[in-house]
Computed example of a mutant assay.
Amino acid sequence: MTPTRRGALALLAAGLPAPAPAPPVPVRVVSYNIHAGAGADGVFDLDRQAAALRALRADVIGLQEVDVRWGARSRWLDMARELGGRLGMRASFAPIYRIGGREFGVAVLSGFRVLGTANHRITRLSTQDPGPGRPRPAPAPALAPGFGEVVLRVRDVPLRVFVTHLDHRADPSVRTAQVAETRRIMRRAPGPKILLGDFNAPPSAPELAPLWRELTDADPGGFTYPAREPVERIDFVAVSAGVRVHAAAVAGTLASDHRPVVADLRLER
C-alpha cells in the first residue's frame, strides 16, 4: 500500500474527508524532423525553424535529422545547441552517426530539469561513407546508436522522453527489428513515457502494430509529409500509461520538408 493511500484511509477512519487527488500536470510536446535545417524550399534557414518552433510554445521537443558540425549543408553548426539556445531550452543530443568530428542524429529540447540521458542502440542499415581511404563495407543490419532517452522532472513528475528515427526503406524488415528493440528498451524504463519520432511508416503499417500494444498514438488528424502538400503521416507522438492525450494537431509550417506534430498531454501524478 502506498503512503498516499495509507494516509487517505487514516483520514477516513478518523471521520475526515480524504484529500482530493492531485490534478494532472499539463505538458506540450512536439515531434519534428528538421531536415538538417532546410525548409520545404530546400534552403537552409535555422532562424526560420527556430521561429516555427517558438510559435508552438512547446515544453519538450523531439528532433530528427539533426546535424552537429556535419558539413556545409548546415554551415558546420551544432544544430541541437543552436536551436536550444535560441529557444531558451536545454539540448540533449544522441548521435546516430559519428564520423571524425561530424555527427548526425536526434535530439530533445526541454525547458525542464534533465535528470539523466542515454543513447540506446537499435538495428540500423547504414550506408554512410567511412571516409577517404577506408573501404565501404557492404551494408548489413547491425546495432547502432541513435535512440535517445532523456529523463525530465516535469514539475514534480519524472517523465522519460524517447526520440527516434526509424529506417526509411520500403522494405519494412529493419523497422520491424527497430520496433521490437524499442519496445524492449521502453518496457525496462519505469514511469510515464513519451515516444517522439519520424517512423517512416503510417500508423496502420503492420511493422508498427506492436507499438500500439503498449503505447497510444496521439493522432493529430492530419498528414505530415511532404510538408508542402502532405499525403501521409509518418511523424508521431505516442504515450504510455500514466500519460493522457488532451489534444493533438499538425502545425502548418514549411520550415522543414516535414510538418511537426504538436500534442497537449496530461501527466498523472
Rank of each mutant, 00 (worst) to 15 (best):
A10W: 11
G15F: 05
G15T: 01
P23C: 05
P23F: 07
V30G: 10
A36Y: 14
G37E: 02
A40H: 03
D41G: 06
D45E: 06
L46G: 11
I61E: 11
W70T: 00
R75F: 09
L77R: 13
M79R: 09
M89C: 01
A91S: 10
I96D: 01
R98E: 05
G100L: 03
F112I: 03
R113D: 04
V114W: 00
N119C: 08
H120P: 02
G131F: 03
R136A: 12
A138I: 13
L143T: 14
G146F: 00
F147S: 04
V150A: 01
V150M: 02
L152G: 01
H168V: 11
A170W: 08
P172G: 09
A177W: 14
T182N: 13
I185P: 03
R188L: 11
I194C: 01
L195D: 01
G197L: 09
F199L: 15
N200A: 09
P203H: 06
A218S: 06
A218T: 06
P220N: 10
F223K: 13
E229Q: 13
P230V: 15
V231D: 15
A238Y: 15
V239L: 07
A247H: 13
G252C: 05
A255T: 00
R259Y: 01
L267A: 01
E268W: 10
